[in-house]
Structure formats: C-alpha cells, structure tokens
Design a protein around this nucleic acid. Structure first.
Ligand SMILES: [Zn+2]
Length: 348
DNA sequence: CGTATTTGACCTGCGC
DNA sequence: GCGCAGGTCAAATACG
C-alpha cells in the first residue's frame, strides 16, 4: 500500500547504503563498456531491491511490535481502570470523613464538587484515584519529605463538562508534589521539559498565585501544567500536569539568543529533573508504574499510528535522517493554538 | 535582536 | 441575567 512512499523513501537511503556505484549519464563509447555498465546497473538494482525488502521487513516488524504494544496496553488499561473504579468507590466512602484540607469552609460551601478533576484536586487533597494496589492506601494529602516528589496521575475521561469536544480524548491529569525553598518565589518545577509560562492567577482558596505553563513544543505538544504552592505547606509546589508529551525530553540545549526557558531557571528548585523523574517512578507503586509506562506507550502508539508521516519518520530514522530541528522552528513562530480554539469557540 | 515572562483584560462556565 | 472564579490571550516588558 505504501509502495510509492517506500520507493520514494528508500531512494533517500540509497546514497547511504549503495554509495559507490553511481554512474554518470551513459555516453556510449563502447559496447563492452556498455555491457559492463548494464551489468553493474543490474547489480545495483539487485542491491536496491534487497535493501527495499530489508526495509520493508523491518517496517513490518516494527509495525508488529507496535501492534503488540498497543494490544498489551489496552489490556493493561482495562485492568487499571478496573482497579481505579474499585479504588474510587473505596475513596468516595471515606471522602466525607477525610476533608482535612483545613478551614476553608466558605469556599467549600460555595461550590459543589465539580467533575473537573483539576478543581477538585486542588481543593481536596485526596486524589481522584488510588492506584496503589500493593500499599492499599495512597496518601498524597500531606507534603512529602524534603527533596521529594510525589506523583499521582489519572486518565480523565470525557465526563467533565468543561472539557470540550476537541479535548475529549481522555486527557491525562497528574499531580506532582515537589519540595521547594519557600523563600524562592519562582513557581517552577524542573521536570526535564521546557515550559512557557502563559499566565498567572491568584486563586480563591490559596493566597499563593498559580502559574500556568504550556509545553514549549506547542502546538505540536498540547501539554499544560499548573504550578501552585500548597496552601498548607508553602514549601511544597503542586504541579498539575494536563496531558502527555508526545516527544522526548529536550536535551539541555538552549536556542541562540533569547533567554533561558523556565525549565532552566528552575535550577533553584531543590529537586533535579532526573531526580523528580526517578522519584516519580519510585513513589509510584508497581501498578502505577505500569500505568505510567503504558501511557507512554499509548502516547507513542497513538501518535505514531495516527500520524500519516509515521512511516516516513521511521524510514528516516532508519537512515539516520530524523528531522531533529523541527520543534525549534515551531518555537520561532508565536503560535497560540489556544487562541484559535477560544476564538472559534467565541464565534460558535 | 529575538525570545520568554509579566500582567491586565478578556472569555467561558457555573451557581444563584 | 448577574456575579464569581478559573483559564487564556496578547501587548508590554525584561532578559541574555
Ligand atoms: Zn511537550
């Protein structure tokens, strides 16, 4: 089905793999030479065909692996969601007794618990799920020890009223608790990704402002995060991640000119990014770990399978031609995808 | 000079 | 319909 594409792409790698036998336009001088050239040409064609077959084979192999990955993922996701449902049921039982958030009774009375997990999460420390199967309890309420980060994540289904149709694809929301110096006013959680701050707001139930960040790979990556100091313990930064990155963590490179990204500025925060990542893994129970990894796999699988250019990228990768610079070009344009969203919404 | 951040204005959803 | 609160935009500003 992709033969045309394959041909086009393999022609890219010809230069790499075949290399030598590129001949000049045939100016026929001799029958002998012509014969020689034609035989050589045949040789090249054979080599090309072999290469084509090899690449096709690899492509099939990778596709199979991807399929298996997706299948495994959906299987595990089913299990996880089952566990989540059970945990949520258990959670809702004791939720009434564990509203230990503090004395913010006024705000609590004003609003009914919304389905928006971000909102509820910020006012209610008990997470919307408890995936910790082994430990039984999943306490994120209190601040963790110094230099520790704790993370909880959830697949947000389409039940939120505020979630619009275009966001209905089960956005993942995860919370990360990072210990930070209270004297440091920067609301930056260094997690290895690059973020662009696009807003700050003082919320009602917390005197500390909440900062809004968007992945600097936007609009290709729609991940957002909110960072706010815990109302109880100002040494704790609560980072709420909305979505999953569809790319790897950027290397510690900063573009020419301009200033450092917010991520780089976060050196002041106690937890190093790698540390955070590792602690996320460590804190997470095995179930969550699996879910986390699965989610990553899902992201990759979904992205790849959805992307028509996946195969092209695959072949490009095989031939070492990954377009590494594309996010940079994206950054150059000041694209606010959200603007289009909101404006369109306003129009409609 | 190019890019990131700041910050007031604006938009949208929700409760009354 | 109005007011409130959270979220986002984008011009102005800061920075390397
Ligand atoms: Zn991203």
């Amino acid at each position: 089905m992709d033969e045309q594409w394959m041909i086009g792409q393999t022609s890219l790698s010809l230069g790499l793999n075949v290399g030598g036998p590129r001949r000049a336009p045939p100016v026929t001088r001799d029958h002998v030479e012509e014969d020689f050239m034609s035989s050589k040409k045949n040789h090249v064609v054979e080599a090309l065909e072999a290469e084509l077959q090899r690449v096709g084979k690899e492509n099939r192999k990778l596709s199979d692996m991807l399929r298996a990955l997706v299948a495994k993922y959906s299987d595990l996701q089913g299990k996880v969601s089952g566990m989540m449902a059970a945990a949520a049921a258990a959670n809702s039982h004791r939720q009434s007794s564990t509203t230990s958030e503090g004395g913010s009774a006024a705000s609590a009375t004003r609003k009914r618990p919304r389905s928006d997990s971000l909102d509820t999460a910020s006012r209610n420390p008990s997470p919307p799920l408890a995936v910790a199967g082994s430990s039984g309890r999943f306490a994120v309420s209190g601040p963790v020890g110094p230099d520790q980060a704790e993370c909880t994540s959830v697949h947000e289904p389409c039940n939120s009223k505020r979630v619009r149709a275009d966001e209905c694809k089960a956005t993942r929301v995860s919370k990360l608790y990072v210990h930070a110096d209270p004297a440091d006013l920067s609301l930056v959680v260094k997690d290895g990704y690059q973020w662009r701050k696009y807003g700050q707001k003082v919320t009602k139930d917390n005197p500390c402002p909440r900062a809004y960040f968007r992945c600097s790979f936007a609009p290709s990556c729609q991940v957002k995060k909110k960072v706010q100091r815990s109302a109880e313990d100002k040494t704790v930064l609560v980072a709420t991640y909305d979505g999953d990155h569809n790319h790897a963590q950027p290397p510690k490179q900063q573009g020419s000119g301009g200033r450092k990204s917010g991520d780089a500025a976060a050196v002041r925060v106690s937890a190093a990014p790698v540390l955070v990542q590792q602690q996320r893994k460590q804190e997470a129970s095995t179930a969550e770990q699996v879910a986390d990894r699965k989610n990553l796999a899902e992201q990759m699988a979904a992205t790849l399978t959805r992307d028509p250019g996946f195969k092209a990228a695959l072949v490009s990768a095989l031939s070492g031609r990954i377009p590494a610079a594309w996010p940079k070009t994206c950054q150059h344009k000041r694209i606010y995808s959200g603007k289009h969203f909101s404006r369109e919404r306003a129009g409609a």
